[in-house]
Simulated assay, not measured.
Amino acid sequence: MSAQECGGARQQRSFGRAADELRPVKLTNDVMKNADGSCLAEFGDTRVLCTACIEEGVPSWRKGQHAGWVTAEYAMLPASTSTRSRREQKGRKGRSMEIERLIGRSLRAVVDLRRLGELTVTCDCDVIQADGGTRTASVTGAWVALHDALMSYVRQDKIKRLPLTDQVAAISMGMVAGRPLLDLDYPEDSHADVDMNLVATGGGGIVEVQGTGERSTISRDQLNALLDLGEQGIRQLIQAQAELTGFGV
């Protein structure tokens, strides 16, 4: 059982996990009646409600291309953190815009937009409880919601076949007190020397790597160790998605 240095005090990791262990992950689909697809993604104490809604037509700049579009919106609900945050208005916060663009890019990486046809899928990711890793839980849960929404259209003969080419999931890694850790919770994230996120497909393709030296730099060997941890976590998340949806099974 591993421990970490956090804020000068030696603490056990949440859920008594080792450095290379995920928090307990639970994906629950079909949680919203009116969405075409939905998923509650739980990574430990982080909970994100992901929905996918399909609309006829595409944005004006995409008309005539005979291809669809997948986009995302992300928000943190006021009571999702320890102190109430103000509800976001139009003219969104920079962080939320950055995360929703990440979610959209991640999902589009595994969708054949021409096979989708001139439809727009919007995936909404609303954080109802935050304890680190909200963007990674959002990507992972949004794929489930997207899968179920598209399958509903296949069953209704509105799409000839499922336009998904693969799965996609995301996980965080970081260097905390000189140790590489997988799936950081908030106390770890807030004290991380280096903070990273990995987005990857079921086939092992890397969609995006985000990394920041918050308090120090890292060596190439440490970077490789973090990526190895991330790939290990991605494989587990991909398996959880597949078990829930039956995709690729």
Rank of each mutant, 00 (worst) to 15 (best):
A145M: 11
D148V: 02
A169C: 15
D148T: 04
Q156T: 13
D157F: 13
D166G: 01
L146C: 04
R135E: 10
L150D: 01
D166A: 05
V168P: 05
D148E: 09
T165N: 13
T136P: 11
A145N: 08
R155D: 04
D166P: 10
L162D: 00
Y153Q: 09
K158W: 11
I159G: 03
Y153W: 13
R155C: 09
Q167S: 14
T134W: 03
S172R: 03
R161H: 15
I171C: 03
K158M: 14
I159L: 15
S152H: 10
Q156L: 14
H147I: 03
I171P: 05
Y153F: 14
G141N: 13
D166F: 06
A149S: 12
D166M: 08
I171K: 02
Q167K: 01
A142E: 03
A149E: 09
L150Q: 02
G132W: 04
M151D: 09
G133E: 09
L146M: 03
V154H: 00
T140V: 05
S138K: 02
T165F: 07
D166V: 03
L162F: 12
L150C: 06
S172D: 12
R155I: 05
D148C: 07
D166E: 12
V144Q: 12
T134I: 10
S152G: 14
K158I: 10
T134R: 12
A145Q: 04
R161V: 15
T140Q: 07
G141P: 13
V168G: 01
T136A: 07
V154G: 00
L162T: 10
L162R: 05
L164W: 06
L164D: 10
A145L: 10
W143S: 12
S172Q: 05
A142H: 07
A142F: 10
M151G: 08
T140Y: 11
A169G: 13
P163M: 03
I171T: 11
Q156C: 12
S152E: 09
Q167D: 11
A142P: 01
V144E: 08
A137C: 14
I159W: 07
V139K: 06
A145P: 06
A170N: 01
R135L: 08
K160N: 15
S152I: 07
Y153K: 05
A142Q: 01
T140E: 11
A142S: 13
H147M: 05
V139A: 04
Y153L: 08
I159A: 09
A137Q: 13
K160L: 15
V139Y: 09
Y153P: 02
P163E: 01
K160E: 15
W143Q: 09
T136E: 00
A137P: 06
S172T: 15
I171M: 06
Q156H: 14
